[in-house]
Computed example of a mutant assay.
Amino acid sequence: MNLYKLGKLVCSLIFYPLYRIKVTGKENIPKDGPVIICANHISNVDPPVVGITNQRDVYFLAKEELFKNRFLEKLMKSINAFPIKRGMRDRNALRKGLGILKENHVLGLFPEGSRQKNGEIGKGLAGAGFFALRSEAAIVPCAIIGPYEKFKPLKVVYGKPIDMTGYREQKASAQVVTDRIMEEIRQLQEFHSEKSVIT
């Protein structure tokens, strides 16, 4: 068993029962080819949660601050995370991310760049749009609906891939693409939050 699978197993054993994780829309994640999963960011635990709710291995761009704590550093590395400087302007990290997509892997992004502790969807940084435009990856929005409280349900919802054809043909700006991605995440959050209230 490699380090990723071991880390995924350990995180699954801890987080699934602790947060009663419920996953919706797994079928929306392509089984092969390059994929970018874009999720909202409400907790430092978001990367492992996205990792364990995917059948495919996910590589993460995570803020470099998470690698300064020994425990978190080991956790991040165990789920294929690599650091990026705040603001997604780290050229080395951007190149590495594109390389991962060229090899037909899954890249996990949190476009907001920092946690939104109130649970609302914040402004996304242009980095997500950059990866979407510079690759042929399928763009899958993901809404993490918390809060992260012990033994209270946490929802992880994957939406259908966003059609990037028009944006790529028109050479849209990275920020315009990111804004569209964040809107899709917002819609997922609103729909599934309302669904919880109704049921």
Rank of each mutant, 00 (worst) to 15 (best):
I14V: 02
Y16Q: 01
Y19V: 03
Y19S: 01
I21T: 07
G25C: 12
K26Y: 15
E27F: 04
N28P: 05
N28R: 06
I29P: 06
P30E: 05
K31W: 10
K31N: 14
D32T: 14
G33K: 08
P34S: 02
C38K: 06
I42Q: 14
N44K: 13
N44R: 13
V45D: 01
P48S: 10
P48M: 02
V50W: 13
N54L: 14
Q55T: 14
R56N: 11
D57Q: 14
V58I: 15
K63E: 09
E64R: 14
L75P: 06
M76N: 12
M76D: 09
K77V: 09
I79F: 13
I79S: 10
A81C: 11
A81G: 12
I84Y: 11
M88H: 11
M88P: 04
R89S: 12
K96R: 15
G97W: 03
L98C: 08
G99M: 10
G99N: 15
K102I: 10
K102E: 15
N104Q: 08
L107E: 01
G108K: 09
L109D: 04
L109Y: 14
G119W: 07
G122C: 09
G122M: 07
G124R: 02
L125W: 02
G129R: 04
F130M: 00
A132T: 05
S135V: 01
E136A: 05
E136I: 02
A137G: 01
